[in-house]
Each structure stands twice: as structure tokens, then as C-alpha cells.
Design a protein around this nucleic acid. Sequence first.
DNA 1: ATGGGCACCTGGCTGC
DNA 2: TGCAGCCAGGTGCCCA
Length: 271
Amino acid sequence: MPELPEVETTRRGIEPHVQGRRVVQLAVHEPRLRWPVAADMPSLVAGQQVTAVRRRAKYLLIDLERGSLLLHLGMSGSLRVMSATTPRLTHDHLDLELDSGQTLRFNDPRRFGSLHYLTEDPAQHLLLRKLAPEPLEDAFDADYLYRVTRKRQVAIKLLIMNSHLVVGVGNIYASEALFRAGIRPGRAAKSLTRAECTRLVKAIRAVLAMAIRFGGTTLRDYVGADGKPGYFRRKLYVYERGGEPCRRCATPIRHRVQGQRSTYFCPQCQR
DNA sequence: ATGGGCACCTGGCTGC
DNA sequence: TGCAGCCAGGTGCCCA
């Protein structure tokens, strides 16, 4: 479910409830996530104070005094803050119970999410070490995108979804950013001109920033940390709009499968 | 090094 | 009503 804007929306939603609190208990109701939750994690994190809540790509980092929890929401995960006494629902797999009487509850039907506890520098962890620059920071610019697309035969949509090259762009925003940049998703990455790279970088930044401002995209059951749905969905130009008229030129939006994922584009506006 | 495909899961929807 | 088949927001890993 979550792309970068949903993860950032979640981070901002939980931060005020979590930062500065002390962990009373980590309750692992279902350890079988994408990777098994380590059995000794509850004993390691109990009693520690939360010093910060950060995000790297689509990972959330909950910094503690002596280490960090590294959480990924996968395809269907969500985090909610609620009273620790609230009855659990199906797929509520984790509870980070706090000294405020509240709990940070992780629900994930598909169990593609994950939780690690790191005592080393998180940036050096295997899952984070090879990630590309953050798209909303300065290192991600037209020069960078132009450089990494040279010699790449792969379709530009697949390239911008490759977290070793660009982080935070998932299936929805990949289609949306390419529409805004006027670039067809199937184009070989190396065929992009410098001007197109400039447009694409701007489009990626703009679409992610706007989605964060609107609190993420509502698709099916997505809700933010406070349980409220995101409002970006009505802003989508192409995603899940196959056959419908392009909002800009009225040409029917096309749908096709790329790398086993759905892609949407306007054959008129995108070249 | 690059690229393509699969795997991990559950649930919702469609069509017979 | 039941059930098979297909699809869904991610990404690490294996193989060619």
C-alpha cells in the first residue's frame, strides 16, 4: 500500500505520540513477517526511550537509546496509535506499548512488512546501505538521473522504481511522474535527453511532495496513522484510469503490464 | 553489471 | 451461494 508519501505521512502522524516516550513492552503477536521477527527483540527494546522517528526511502526508523527499530510496511502494512487496551483485530501483528498508555500497533494482512532491531549505524545495514539518494533532497537532480540512465536499456518506469537508483517511487507515482514529465513509461532509460531528465526529476519531486501534502493516496483501505484516509487519489492523472479520458487531452488512457506491474499512460501527452 | 522473473502472503472482486 | 482465477501499494534474491 504505502509508497514514500504514505510512509512519510505515517511518520509525521506517529512522531508526536512516540518521540520521548519510553517503551513498556514490544508485543509480537505474529513473528512471521517477510523476515521472522527476532525472538530476543522484545527483551532488547523494553525500557528504552524513543529519541526520534525518521524515514529512509520507505523504511521507518524508530531510534531508541541503544539502537533503532527498522520497520517496513510492505504492500499492505499500516501503523496506528491507539490505547493499549484497544482490542486487537485480525492481522494486528505488533504492539509497541508506550509509557503513555498508548500503543503503536502494526497491522499487515499480507505480511510483506518487516521489523529489525539494529545496534549498528542504520545507514550501514544491508537493507539501507545500497539505497539511492532521497528524491526530495539535493543529491537527486537532473545530472544524477542523466548519469545513471546512460547505458541503461531498461524501461524508464522500471528504472525509477529501482531503489538502488531512485528511492521512494512506487507503482502509482512512477506512472504519475512520467505523465507529468510527458515521457512514455516504456522508453529505454538511455534514450532520455538531458531536458527529459530535468523534467522527470521535477515531476518526481512534485508528485511526491504534493502527495505528502495531501496525506498520501487512498487506495482501497489505506489510512494514515490517525486512521484518516489520504486525499491524493482524486489528483491522479493516469493510475487506475485505463480507458478513461486523459484529464489534459481527453485521449483514452492506456493500460499495460511492465515488469509484472500495471502501467498507465496517455499516448498523446507522453512521447 | 544488467535485466528478467519469482517469491513471500491475504483479501477483494469478477465471472461462471 | 460457492468457488476458481486474477489482481493489488514492495523488494530481495536467483538465474541467465
